[in-house]
Design a protein around this nucleic acid. Structure first.
Lengths: 376, 376
DNA sequence: GCCCGCAGGGAAAAGGCTTTCACTGCGGTA
DNA sequence: TACCGCAGTGAAAGCCTTTTCCCTGCGGGC
């Protein structure tokens, strides 16, 4: 590997001059020498050793983010926002996947510290785990004590700058929507119980249901992984135990897609028999059938704001930016079916469809009801 | 930021001893001193400076990958495979998004070289661009000349180790399937024309059609971005120009999802009126409606194999691993409609559906026809 | 009682770069 | 003419680790 000295030697100058030419120092260099150095660089295909540079230079040139999994669209979107702001400021973004393993998260904080990053962003739900939280805060505090900056997205535990999606209000929106559509027996397909995102969303949902005089008994909440297969499993369990359900709330869109898949496989019509509602508004939500009603979080913007927070000069008291959630009505929700049971059909009009079980999509239903039934 | 000297001073030992304790050197250290050092480390929350370590140590400890965009499921899957193998060997993976910008790709090669990575993986389609290819190969050669290892996924341009998805055969599978289903007028929703992935898949498709005595005139191929919105745009253009189309081939699944969305918005029944077929078999393909018929590429495995290739000791002659593509039949393809036009319905039986346009999902069609009509 | 070998520890070099400081001419001012 | 200042360059001091090499005792074999 060619080094700066090699370049300098070949150009017949000192390393100092070579360095000055290569990274456009403010010190002037004669065109003659500059030319020689540049030629040597090209001939040797010289690339500066980034680690040596980092060691020699004072200022940090990278930032790090710890997410659960970048390939999860939720984090992919957030990362896009982070990336944009970091890129604008000429900083490199190192992405670390914790795969929801608290220990790995801790390790990654150390690793990023070791990399001398200018800032660490923690994206994704926190855990209900006092020991872990304390450990994490200690590590973050140590990092901040040496000038490191920290921002979190959607985590309560850290006392510094934060971008907080309003999961609770999002949950309320879901609850209100379903109540107004007349749903009374609502099941929840929830992510891991240890995640604050799960409990926050659930708490909001519960509040809204309570306001409408409904309850959400524990047996109608099923916890599983926050992904498609978790959604399948939890929905299956829910449906088996509570056949009279008219709505399924999934606590994120991936789970909702799993719920949709399971319902389709069981030939349950959505939304005629069961409504499904998701959370996050991932890009794919509009492309599943029926298009998913969900709660939108401006994920890219959340990422961008978190990075800005982390990169702007520190202020004495921590800033928290609450990000509003917004209900997006699509085709997977509809009015609750009448109390008369729909499955075993009560001898409807004979026709080609009579012998078939009801199917996933209901062609009779326009893509969006223009008038909605009044809340009961 | 605490340094090793700080630790050593606090423990009352030399930096050498502190270093030995901290990274378990083979040199023995008294328990007494070891204890003191460890305590100092804990008290100072010392984390070694990764860059200084890299500089001092001989061996490389990271690998890099350049993808078009990790948040694209195609690359997310590949990256997962890369990550797995790298992780198993205790190497860190640095991910770079080129966003399909050749210049940025070039820059990233330099950057990764500067980071002293042990290997560079180039994932994703190459370009039909001789200048760029030459430049890239020069940079890669320079990197390899200094002991760097390179592996590519799905790129012809590089002469070294490669994992090559059999895009051409995949294209043939698509063509054969559609021909056997009786389709004659087939449109293609293609990715950017400069990408070899696009042209390879297209070439295979053309071959298969030719073998069945059909042709694919240029005006039935529309090029757009390799994403959902590209799929929407290209499909719209295609449909407007070629209303008699009975099948749409999308050259990747994202575009296929866009095609599905556009067809749905135009109330064209899939697959009754138009069949849609994708490519890649991204996880979401099974969850759209109708579930997408597509060509499966074992993406995770491709990533894993590429990383193994790059990390195994170099061999004199480059290895190329061809990865087989496989057709996955789902619900978005079906027999070509009869030549009698289907849209303007020929006065079918009166009923509640008569006044409505045909809709995206056809409840009359079982999820998979058990017997397929013979090819004409 | 001597010397050898080794356990245990420290000094210092190396790794590649940036940057401060010092040095050399030169043009310009007093 | 003597000096000041500055443009242009190089020497060298870091930056933080790792690791080689060397030194000091000490125990054991003869």
């Amino acid at each position: 590997m060619a080094t700066l000295s090699d370049v300098a030697r070949r150009a017949g100058v000192s390393p100092a001059t070579a360095s000055r030419v290569i990274n456009g120092s403010s010190k002037p260099v004669t065109d003659e020498l500059r030319e020689r150095v540049l030629r040597a660089v090209a001939e040797l295909q010289y690339v500066p050793n980034a680690h040596a540079q980092l060691l020699a230079r004072a200022h940090r040139t990278a930032v790090g983010v710890i997410v659960h999994d970048v390939s999860d669209p939720y984090f992919a979107e957030i990362t896009r926002g982070l990336q944009r702001v970091a890129g604008d400021r000429g900083l490199l973004l190192t992405i670390c996947n914790s795969y929801r393993d608290p220990d790995r998260e801790l390790e990654y904080v150390e690793l990023l510290r070791g990399q001398q990053v200018a800032a660490i962003i923690l994206a994704g739900s926190g855990y209900h785990d006092a020991t872990f939280t304390r450990l994490l805060n200690e590590k973050l505090a140590a990092y901040e004590a040496t000038g490191g900056r920290v921002a979190v997205i959607g985590r309560h535990e850290h006392s510094g700058d934060a971008v907080m999606p309003d999961n609770r209000t999002g949950g309320r929106l879901v609850g209100r929507e379903l109540c107004e559509l007349g749903h009374r027996t609502i099941g929840v397909v929830a992510g891991p119980q240890v995640l604050t995102t799960t409990t926050d969303r659930l708490a909001g949902l519960r509040e809204a249901l309570a306001e409408h005089g409904r309850s959400l008994p524990g047996h109608r909440v099923r916890y599983a992984e926050f992904d498609r297969d978790g959604g399948v499993a939890a929905t299956a369990a829910l449906l088996d135990a509570e056949p009279e359900l008219t709505a399924v709330v999934a606590l994120n869109d991936s789970m909702a897609i799993g719920a949709l898949a399971l319902l389709r496989s069981r030939s349950v019509a959505v939304p005629r028999e069961v409504s499904v509602i998701g959370f996050d508004d991932m890009p794919i939500a509009r492309d599943v059938t029926p298009a998913l009603t969900t709660v939108r979080l401006p994920l890219v913007e959340m990422g961008a704001r978190a990075m800005s927070l982390a990169l702007d000069p520190a202020v004495p008291q921590p800033r928290t930016e609450l990000v509003a959630a917004e209900l997006v009505r699509r085709d997977s929700t509809g009015p609750a079916p009448q109390l008369m049971p729909v499955r075993p059909r009560a001898g409807g009009p004979a026709g080609p469809t009579a012998a078939r079980p009801p199917r996933a999509s209901d062609p009779d239903r326009p893509s969006r009801p223009t008038a909605r039934p009044p809340a009961p």
